[in-house]
Design a protein around this nucleic acid. Structure first.
Lengths: 245, 245
DNA sequence: TTTTTTATTGAGTCTACCTCATTAATATCT
DNA sequence: AGATATTAATGAGGTAGACTCAATAAAAAA
């Protein structure tokens, strides 16, 4: 009984420092969950490994028998996040017909993710992207796979002539995900509440339809058709005038 | 003479540890330059205050008589960066007529900044935005002023009917700057060389004109004009037929 | 029960931000 | 010019947090 806690007279009614051994997988999951939670709450830099350990019910050193570094822990958290995100998005996409609807779905889905798990999204955006050296190859691959879903839709759109043939799919993908990201930051700073439905419609409409007023004189193909039609109209009118005289 | 360096027998041919006093403004500029350089090269987290001090020719403690913290140093660097960026962009914008050309200029300018000073841009993107608590109010204001330039152009475009009346300027601004940012990251990861001209055209064309193929059936106003013309053509043809019979 | 294995520990190292009492270079005064 | 006052500059700590490792004890195997 006295062997339970190292020091015989320790009262320790609070600490659950029982030193119980658990199967590796279970402990790893505990630590991973704890890390996800703490990172989401406080951000990467502000979270400490000691705090993550304590929340998982272990001591700081234990974390390092499961993960090589604080960074590795973050990467593992990100992997879990991405894998479920990709799976959800893939199944959602399969249920939707039409390139335009699929693009609208992707935009809305991304906004929903931001809204529902903003803490973690913020950490990922801050830590993952700008850190080229520490950007784990596997995470880069997951990210590629995720945004690759949008790329595939865009390419199909071009192939089926739903989208203009002269667009560059990768540029449009950047426009979509970059635009969403900035729009979300805007809401975070302004502290207004994010209306996912409205914002995703605004974004989708702008991306799909562009911003230049079509009343103008700027659409080459259409205006060519128009001038040709006008020329024919002119010719017919001349004929008509002549026949009426 | 022996009072020059504290310890009499110090050889110190390398160190410029002369302990010379400089006017505050000059020293501050030295430290600021050094910080900008080191931050750009190594990033915020990897740069150490000791290194910045050493490069500026002072000792670590000296930095703290000029800047309250490492973070404050970064904010000062960012302020200098933003102020010159805003000034350049404002003068450039004044020399350009037409909303569409102005938007193309803004896009190109931003891409040029990324290409020419990528190290610092990366630090700013990583450190400034996601850190709400440490985000100095003055920097937020500078950022607002910078992207506000785009906002003004967009609003003018709507007012003069060059742009569609139903667009949301702030959303378009997010699309522009977010899209540029992601496109640049893409190039960084792929390690291909960034062609500013091509990319800015691709981005501008997509944002201005949208991605949906106009050959389709989707542009209401234009097709209205078409149907009216067709109706006139019909009428003329009928008249022509009748007169020829 | 005894032995082996290995998960868990916590004390200790190291690095980097930051503080502060001391020092000496310049400016001011007589 | 010499004495005094001011304050820029210093560098020796303080502290926090990531990371290491030899020792320990809980579970498994013999």
């Amino acid at each position: 009984m006295s062997t339970r806690t190292a020091i015989g007279h320790s009262p320790a009614p609070r600490a659950t420092r029982t030193r119980t051994r658990r199967p590796r997988a279970e402990r790893e999951a505990q630590i991973l969950d704890s890390a996800r939670r703490i990172f989401s709450e406080k951000g990467y830099g502000e979270a400490t490994v000691a705090e993550i350990a304590s929340f998982a019910g272990v001591v700081e050193g234990t974390v390092y028998t499961y993960f090589a570094s604080k960074r590795a822990l973050l990467i593992a958290v990100m992997r879990v996040f991405f894998e479920s995100l990709i799976a959800e998005t893939e199944t959602g996409l399969r249920a939707i017909r039409g390139v335009e609807n699929q693009l609208r779905f992707l935009i809305r889905k991304q906004l929903e993710i931001f809204a529902s798990d903003f803490g973690l999204c913020r950490v990922i955006l801050r830590e993952a992207r700008p850190d080229l050296t520490l950007y784990d190859e596997a995470i880069l691959e997951l990210n590629r796979r995720y945004t690759g879903l949008a790329l595939a839709v865009l390419e199909e759109g071009v192939a089926t002539s739903v989208l203009r043939e002269n667009i560059v799919p990768s540029v449009i993908r950047d426009l979509i995900y970059g635009g969403i990201e900035h729009a979300v930051w805007r809401f975070v700073f302004s502290e207004r509440e994010l209306d996912v439905g409205t914002l995703s419609d605004q974004l989708a409409d702008s991306i799909l339809g562009g911003i230049v007023c079509p009343c103008g004189n700027e659409l080459p193909e259409q205006s060519e058709t128009l001038t040709r039609l006008e020329r024919v109209a002119d010719r017919l009118e001349v004929s008509l005038d002549r026949s009426q005289s």
